[in-house]
Design a protein around this nucleic acid. Sequence first.
DNA 1: CAGCGCATGTAATCTGTTACATGATTAG
DNA 2: CTAATCATGTAACAGATTACATGCGCTG
Lengths: 207, 207
Amino acid sequence: MGDLQRAEQQDEHPDDPTAGLPPTAWAVLGLLSFPGERTGYELKKWADSSLRFFYWSPAISQIYSELRRLEARGYATSRRSGPDEPRTKRAYTITAEGRAALDHWAGPGHDPGAPVLKHPLLLRVWLGHLSEPERLRTLVHEHIARTRAELTEVREALARAEGVEAWGHPQIALRWSERRLVGEVEQAEAMLGDLAGLGEAAGREEL
Amino acid sequence: MGDLQRAEQQDEHPDDPTAGLPPTAWAVLGLLSFPGERTGYELKKWADSSLRFFYWSPAISQIYSELRRLEARGYATSRRSGPDEPRTKRAYTITAEGRAALDHWAGPGHDPGAPVLKHPLLLRVWLGHLSEPERLRTLVHEHIARTRAELTEVREALARAEGVEAWGHPQIALRWSERRLVGEVEQAEAMLGDLAGLGEAAGREEL
DNA sequence: CAGCGCATGTAATCTGTTACATGATTAG
DNA sequence: CTAATCATGTAACAGATTACATGCGCTG
């Protein structure tokens, strides 16, 4: 919106410890805030199986670099796998400073910001005058199929989360995602109706 | 998903004229595909008032650079305002090549790609163990208010589009956005219920 | 004439992806 | 033994934003 002239300064006080980290860093640190230590690779899988439903999944290389950055800031520490474990891997743990920073980030006086949606299908529909009506309908059907597939993935994730102690909030996020995807299918179906309506109107004119 | 190892090659044939342009460029070119010429500034306002509801609004400086790129490719031409008009402005028009490229982009054999959602509120809910329950509920309420405000904006845009000839597809996209925002409010309200459920469970344990 | 909105653009920077390199372990 | 998967990283690049600079025209 209003960035025609000015950036709308998310007024960060100069000593705001929340400043200077992109949302991805907070997401990664958030992943670490659950009990236990984990490697970049594990984090990526976690992100793929839950974060991505409401907040996209960063590339693995980015996760590695965010982890290094968090460690540089003292928000996390890492440990190479000992000789007991077979593999050369590096596991990260959140530090007390990291927790404090996260708490501050989650605290009041800090607006989460508006959601961003990039929906390529809708871009295509919006420019629908460029496509064959048939083509457009196919795209919408494919989208419905893709969304249904995602829905079963969410439900699987939900089943896995069911009953795990202290996972209340992640579960709520997954339930939200489930409802959202159900809505997405309904909205796509409604749009199919609208598209048919357009076709009819055009058809009538041709008579 | 699958980008742990490999990029999932959107197999672009080497001579695909669709290749080499980011989605934003197509969105801008799409904006130009509607009759008439327009300036970067106008494009930005257009994007803010409709594109952004389903496909985010690029920064004004990016619009300017995309326009220059499109012109360099021969997909658009520009014209400085004549002495008749008061202001020094540059208006862009799509060329025949631009239309051809857009048609190809919109054509078959070219997957629009999956929608991307970045929902900071859900990131916060997901990490809800870091916040006071009260704080979380406030955030959700603020989000509902913001969404309702957006909803009236969509409806205004829809009212403006109503009746304009040949705006059928943009209208459909706006109607989709309207339904989506209605869903967003419902889902946020449902989540409020889930959050209350968590609180109750915790409350019971404390008895 | 001061200030705001219109209008265009450049430079620096940051975020994030893709491609590539490397090696170890495990399943068939 | 070989292929797949695990695991970590680097380098180059692309996409996008922010900050900054500039100037005109209109309104009060």
